[in-house]
Design a protein around this nucleic acid. Structure first.
Lengths: 241, 241
DNA sequence: ACTAGTTGTCTAGTTCATTAGACAAATCGA
DNA sequence: TCGATTTGTCTAATGAACTAGACAACTAGT
């Protein structure tokens, strides 16, 4: 599109409406049990046709966020996004304790590879150095919460993947290497659309937005331990610093 | 859409392709001056038609990220996203110093209003209490970087808006109230699509993704000073904790 | 000069997104 | 019971998004 003004920007109206309403619910403007404005009112608010609003509501109903009742209205069903705290000591399971009943971490795959420039820099290695790469997926109450890729120095953690499978907890694995304490050295946060694989694994509708966190965990003396790239569905999670 | 599988998810293919390529460039997989894969190769990689890839590349060319040269290929022109550090002491102008030549903050509007539940809670007030609301827009090197809404207790900062207009810097305005030092009490980060107003003010193409930060600044004793809701274009900024 | 590889442009057809209007079906209060 | 309000379903028309194929224009190496 060089000359024609692309006002639509490639994101369908119904999706933007769905996102906006979901945000009102998650953000607390609409509480669980509240009745939404009528379809006609929403249509006017978003300058859209009632059918377009209905499509947005249908998506939210599919997600379980709202439910329509003929003759009565459309009501908020679920609510609340989980909060993921980021601080000096960031531990996955402790962080979300109390916000969900069951927390599971699934190991997807692992392999050896040569560090890319970004990975090498994060871990303080030379580009091309051997690193362990681990792919994982975490869920709370059966809903996927994060898709993470972790890299570690192969020389220091040669069998990291095997220990993750055996011990399940990252903290426990580090402890098994004699690392009793470690801290978050840096976290960089960005956002983008999910790709096809992420969409599928995280159980999202295509085009969903991800919060992307690039984190480096380090020993107390500052030497880097691991570099993790985690992707959180923005509709289910927020990060708290 | 209740039964039919909506694989498209309301985000156009050309936009997802553009986002993916932009991410490769920003993330460092493609450096400035590098040649992109040919349109045919990209089309195959994204399982799309060559025309669809061309549309994505046209958007990126419009943004100045890439440039096509007939017969030769398409090349990376610009790069790099700005980093916005978030920590105990978060000061807008200091944070971005060194990453851009000129930094400007524009005052858009201000008004008195009654605190919503969220604002009241953040500022430690009762819902409905009088608060000052200030709308602003910050830019670096002429490109808009953040759209911020700030709320403050009216009883403590009755003429905050006027002082912002006069002094330009938030830090200076706080100092004029006798607050020489203040810290970031909490920051919550989420992400969503930009709405129409944000798209226009930030100079984005519609459907762009925003990083949303809700920040509470407080005195050293912990009493809240201000509640700020800032929106950053995810394609231009990342947040660093 | 030729050739292979690459971007630029055109036409055509299919599916998706959005609008428009009409009416049915359910709910609720008067 | 009636009438107003609200969600559910159907048909139809328009424009955007995507695919498909063909060929022109330009570049670089032989």
């Amino acid at each position: 599109m060089t000359d024609p003004k692309d006002v639509l920007g490639g994101v369908a109206l119904w999706r933007r409406i769905a996102d906006a309403i979901r945000l009102d619910i998650i953000g607390g403007k609409l509480a669980s049990g509240d009745r939404l404005p009528t379809e006609a009112v929403l249509a006017e608010r978003f300058s859209a046709n009632r059918h377009t609003v209905r499509r947005a509501l249908a998506v939210l109903a599919d997600e379980g966020v709202v439910g329509a009742e003929q003759g009565r209205g459309t009501f908020v069903r679920s609510a609340k996004r989980l909060s993921y705290p980021i601080g000096k000591r960031t531990r996955f399971s402790e962080n979300l304790a109390g916000q969900a009943q069951t927390l599971t971490s699934r190991h997807l795959s692992d392999r050896l590879e040569n560090a890319s420039a970004a990975v090498a820099q994060a871990l303080g290695l030379k580009a091309g150095a051997k690193v362990v790469r681990v792919e994982g997926l975490s869920s709370a109450d059966g809903r996927p919460l994060s898709r993470a890729t972790t890299w570690l120095d192969y020389r220091k953690f040669p069998d990291f993947a095997a220990r993750v499978v055996a011990l399940h907890s990252t903290t426990a694995v580090f402890a098994s290497y004699g690392i009793d304490d470690y801290v978050r050295a840096s976290t960089r946060i960005s956002a983008r659309h999910a790709d096809a694989e992420e969409t599928q694994l995280l159980g999202l509708s295509a085009g969903a937005i991800l919060l992307v966190s690039e984190a480096i965990d380090a020993r107390l003396d500052g030497s880097p331990i691991s570099y993790a790239l985690s992707r959180f569905p923005a509709e289910r999670m927020e990060l708290v610093v």
